[in-house]
Structure formats: C-alpha cells, structure tokens
C-alpha cells in the first residue's frame, strides 16, 4: 500500500511538473523576458502573514524590494506598502496555444508590487517565470528527442534483429559508427555551418533532431537483442510454420515483447536528453537569449561571483534533480514490471 502511494506521488509529481511547463504563461506571474532593471539579483520575496503592526492576515502578502542605501547590490524590504498575493490575477499577455492569448495568471500582485518566488537574475527577470518557460524547452527537448531516438532506434533495431544477415550487419556497423562519434564536437560543427540567425523554434527543433539522431544507436542495439531472442520463441516459430507474414509476426508476436523494454528505455532516455539540452545550452549552443532553458539558466553559475553570492540561482539545478529522480524512479518501477511480465 505504502509502495503504491509512493508510485502515485511520483507519477503525480511528474504530471504536475509537465503541466507547469506546458502552460508556463499561466503559472508564471511574469513574461520570461520582462526586465526589472532596478532589481538585478534580488532575492526571493518572502511571503508574509503578519504585517509590520503585528496584525495577522489570512491571505499572504509580499513587500517590494528596495536597494539598501548603505550598500550597492543589497536589498531590503520596503515595509511601507504591502501587496496581497491574488489568485487568478490579470497580468501581462502570453500565448497559450497558437493565436490564443490570455492575460490570466495563476497568481500575481498588484503593480507596482512584484512577487519573485525564486528571486531575479542579472537583468532583474523573475527566475520562477524563467524556470517555467525554460522547463518547456528543456523538458520537451528531452521528450521529443527521446521519441525521435526511440522511434528510429526501435525501427532499425527490430528490423536488424528480425531479418539478420546483411541487414543486421549494415545496421550494427552504423550503430557502432554512431556510438563512436564524438557527438559534442559534431554538434559544434553542425551549429557552425548553420545560418547566423535561426528562429527559436528552429533552434529548438534542430536541438531535438540532432539529439534524437545521435541517440538512436543504443536503443537500436538493445532492441535488436530482444528481437533476436523473441523470434526464436516457440510461439513465434509456430506462427511462422503456419505461414504468417513477417509483418503479422512482428506486429502480433515480436513487438509486444519489446514494449516493456521500450518504456524503460524511454524513461531513461528522457532525463538523459534533458541533460543533453542543458549541456548544449550551457555551452551556448541551444536556444538564444532572451529565451530561457534550464541549461541557459544554469550557465549563469559559470561566473564565480554568481556562484558564491546568489543561492537562488541554483534553483533550476534543484528542479532538474527532482525531475531526474522522478524519471529514474519511474524507470526502475517499469523495469520491475517488465521483469515480472517476462517471467
């Protein structure tokens, strides 16, 4: 029962994380590029319930940050005016899907107040909003990349395992070639030959494409192995003896045996590819400013002064760790399930 509850918790967490980043505009109080130039590196706004006079408020409120007069770059709360946190507040417009835009945000405070749940970055942009928008790029690069890799990998792996002979030889040599490629340098090279200016969506698709294309080799090899053993099973042999076509055998008897493994691989590949996007963006090869991704956000930490002074800049890393753990845990669970089914 306890285990079951944990599973529910992890799956809910994963679902919630994905929901947040599918609709970042709604959950984020601000636009990812909105600069608050008077407030670079402002710390997270604490939520208050008790005001300066000692009165308790049932609805939380925040104070604005103002620069401390005695020291540059340090902030203190301006206690003269409090700003209540409002649910379903109207704010800056954002695109929901396609041409559909909205101004409705999950929460917000009335201007001129500002709520920075995770503080601000070096341009005074809300780190929480940027994390949500950034998650959209990073998570989807991971998901789509994994889908591309898995699709290409399983198609080639299954074909290779099932038909064997020269098909197998060609595909497997190709796999070895791809595994041996120094893919980071390959990506540097790919980026270098592309035109200077590519749109964010193109950069994103490119990222997904390249990551997926490079990542298909391992799943292909794994699935080939499974198909090799699956096609020797008695019921497969029986089906073949009865004159079933290759397509039928693949669809009805061989592929179902690979589904469990595929799911497990997927759960492993997604975080791996999220990390690939993070790495690429960290190195400046991903989507460009001002569009955030988790890699971009973490790249700020390359600076010694940021690393030692502003703890909230680590928050994207924590989100990444949580997401990874959830995916890894799911993958482990799936593997258990697969093992049970296969025995």
């Amino acid at each position: 029962m306890n285990k079951r509850r944990r599973t529910i918790f992890v799956v809910t967490l994963l679902a919630a994380l994905h929901l947040f980043v599918i609709f970042p505009g709604f959950f984020a109080p601000y636009d990812y590029s909105a600069q608050e130039r008077e407030l670079p590196f402002a710390p997270p706004s604490p939520l208050h319930f008790v005001d300066a006079a000692g009165d308790f408020h049932s609805r939380p409120f925040v104070y604005s940050w103002k620069e401390r007069p005695d020291s540059r770059g340090a902030y203190e709360e301006d206690r003269t005016q409090m700003f209540k946190v409002r649910l379903f507040a109207m704010g800056s417009p954002y695109v929901v899907v396609g041409p559909w835009t909205s101004r409705l945000h999950l929460f917000g405070v009335a201007a001129p107040g500002r709520i920075f749940l995770f503080g601000t970055d070096d341009f005074g942009r809300d780190e929480f909003s940027r994390m949500l928008y950034g998650g959209r790029i990073s998570l989807f690069a991971g998901l789509l990349g994994a889908a591309v890799a898995l699709f290409a990998g399983s198609a080639l792996g299954v074909v290779s395992g099932y038909y064997g002979k020269w098909v197998d030889a060609v595909v497997m040599r190709l796999v070895e070639l791809f595994l041996a490629l120094p893919w980071l340098y390959l990506l540097f090279a790919v980026r270098a030959v592309l035109p200077l200016r590519i749109k964010t969506t193109d950069a994103f698709l490119l990222l997904v494409g390249v990551v997926g294309l490079v990542g298909w080799a391992r799943p292909a090899r794994l699935l080939r192995g499974i198909v090799l053993s699956a096609k020797e099973r008695n019921f497969v042999l029986a089906a073949r003896a009865m004159g079933a076509s290759d397509l039928h055998i693949l669809r009805r008897h061989v592929l179902p045996q690979t589904y469990g493994t595929m799911l497990t691989i997927a759960a492993l590949l997604v975080p791996q590819f999220i990390l690939a996007e993070v790495t690429l963006s960290f190195l400046g090869l991903g989507v460009g400013e001002p569009m955030p991704s988790w890699g971009n956000l973490l790249a700020e930490l390359q600076k010694y002064s940021v690393l030692t002074s502003y703890w909230w800049m680590y928050l994207p890393a924590i989100a990444l760790v949580v997401l990874f753990l959830a995916y890894q845990w799911t993958s482990a669970k799936l593997q258990e399930k697969v093992a049970v089914v296969n025995t």
Binding site: R37, D122, F123, L196, G284, G288, P290
Partner: peptide, 30 residues
Amino acid sequence: SSSNAQRTKLATIAQDDLKQLGMDVHIVPM
C-alpha cells in the same frame, strides 16, 4: 563576441530597449 559574457548582456539590454521602439532585434554571439 561569444567569449565576452558582458558584451552579450549589453546586447540583451539593447535588444529589449529596441523592442520598445518596435524593432525586432536578434543577438548572435560569435
């Protein structure tokens, strides 16, 4: 210049400033 983080930051601010005038500016670190 991509080797200079400050330069990219300046460009990001300039980009935002020019957006106020309705110009669509892209930054390419190189």
